[in-house]
Simulated scan of single mutants.
Amino acid sequence: MNKDILKKELDKLGVNPNEYSLNGNIESDKIVLYQNYSKWEVFYFDERGGRNCEKVFCNEEDACSYIYELFKSNK
Rank of each mutant, 00 (worst) to 15 (best):
M1T: 08
N2M: 05
N2I: 02
K3N: 11
K3M: 08
D4N: 15
D4S: 15
I5S: 15
L6M: 10
K8T: 15
K8C: 09
L10P: 05
D11G: 00
K12R: 14
V15Q: 05
V15S: 05
N16P: 01
N16E: 08
N16A: 06
N18C: 03
Y20Q: 10
Y20A: 09
S21D: 14
S21T: 13
L22W: 04
N25I: 10
I26A: 02
E27C: 03
E27T: 09
E27D: 13
D29T: 02
D29F: 04
I31N: 07
L33T: 10
Y34R: 06
Y34A: 01
Q35T: 11
N36R: 10
K39A: 08
E41H: 12
E41N: 12
F43T: 00
Y44L: 03
R48G: 04
R48M: 05
G49A: 09
G50A: 05
R51P: 00
R51D: 01
N52D: 00
E54D: 00
E54N: 01
E54L: 06
K55I: 01
V56D: 02
V56L: 07
C58E: 11
C58W: 07
C58L: 10
N59Y: 03
E61C: 01
E61T: 09
D62Y: 07
A63V: 08
C64L: 11
Y66D: 01
Y68W: 11
E69I: 08
L70T: 04
K72E: 14
S73M: 14
N74I: 08
N74E: 14
N74S: 14
N74R: 15
N74T: 09
N74L: 13
K75M: 08
